[in-house]
């Protein structure tokens, strides 16, 4: 009898998690309906946001751009850090380094934001300028006005540091599971350490790398306050990531929330934007777990 109650209570707790998740989707949907009704499909394609017409076309575009920049920076770094921890570092340093990466995950995003804005931005701007001067023939490096602050690039770099810990954790987990026999075989055949990594560790860990990157993508898409602090919002799209101005769904919600609280229609629009963000992150995370679940190496690694 006692056991029945115990199991019932524990099971209820477990289901509550799913129920809350369901409620989040449901309530956002209910609140989003007015906006979705008035805007229709153009909610996804409209490039402006006023209290009359609004849509998340441009915002969604910049959200993805920032997340992609973050991934392009974070994934090679995460692979390197994971390799360093698993293959290169002496055992003592290994533990310390793992802790430090975890600590990086514990730093609040607000602090990343102010650090990125006040410390990193002045350091990155010359790099942006140099890139745009030398490589302006590549569309993403071109610059229109020669202003490089508050750009998608800077936001992406800061977000990359924030997604690095989780990506590293997955990749490290996978790398540490490479069958020692295969590694030793490579070494015995005369491979250098890098040769062993290239032919054994990296191929084995591919599933984990992709899964970790996807998981990082999910985090990067939902990043709010750091992006908010760094970018200056724009509602046009362009490939120029170094130029001033970017946007993101999460930052947009935070930015417009104050004025929208008194304007039901706009609030509904923000709810719809939140719903899109929620669904996109859920989708990305789901794909990540499928990718990881299917690969040989990462089977069983929990995301």
């Amino acid at each position: 009898m006692g056991d029945l109650i115990f199991r019932g209570v524990a099971r209820t707790a477990g289901f509550t998690v799913g129920f809350v998740l369901f409620l989040i989707g449901l309530f956002l949907l209910i609140r989003a309906i007015p906006a979705l009704q008035s805007e229709g499909f153009s909610f996804l394609t409209t490039f402006e946001w006023t209290s009359e017409t609004f849509g998340i076309g441009a915002i969604l575009y910049w959200t993805v751009v920032i997340a992609l920049v973050a991934l392009v920076v974070a994934v090679p770094m995460a692979i390197a850090v994971a390799l360093f921890i698993v293959e290169y570092a002496p055992p003592r340093l290994r533990k310390l380094f793992t802790s430090l990466i975890d600590l990086l995950a514990a730093v609040p995003s607000l602090i990343f934001g102010i650090w990125g804005f006040y410390y990193l931005q002045p350091k990155i701007i010359p790099l942006s300028r140099w890139l745009s001067e030398r490589f302006s023939f590549i569309p993403i490096f071109a610059s229109e006005r020669g202003l490089f602050s508050s750009s998608a690039f800077i936001a992406g770099v800061v977000v990359s540091l924030m997604v690095l810990p989780i990506t590293t954790a997955v990749i490290r987990e996978v790398f540490s599971r490479v069958p020692p026999g295969e590694k030793e075989a490579a070494l015995a055949l005369g491979a250098t350490r890098w040769g062993m990594i290239r032919t054994v560790v990296l191929p084995f860990g591919r599933g984990g790398i992709i899964g970790g990157a996807m998981l990082g993508l999910g985090r990067a898409l939902g990043e709010t306050i750091a992006v908010y602090i760094i970018i200056s919002p724009i509602f046009t799209i362009s490939p120029r990531i170094l130029d001033l101005g970017a946007n993101s769904i999460a930052a947009h919600i935070a930015l417009r929330f104050g004025e929208a609280a008194a304007d039901p229609q706009q609030l509904s629009g923000l709810m719809a934007a939140g719903l899109v963000l929620f669904l996109v992150t859920l989708g990305v995370n789901a794909v990540a777990s499928v990718v990881v679940g299917r690969s040989r190496s990462a089977k069983g690694v929990e995301l």
Partner: peptide, 8 residues
């Protein structure tokens, strides 16, 4: 749930 963005 661990992937739910905080703003959501």
């Amino acid at each position: 749930m661990s992937g739910v963005p905080s703003i959501v």
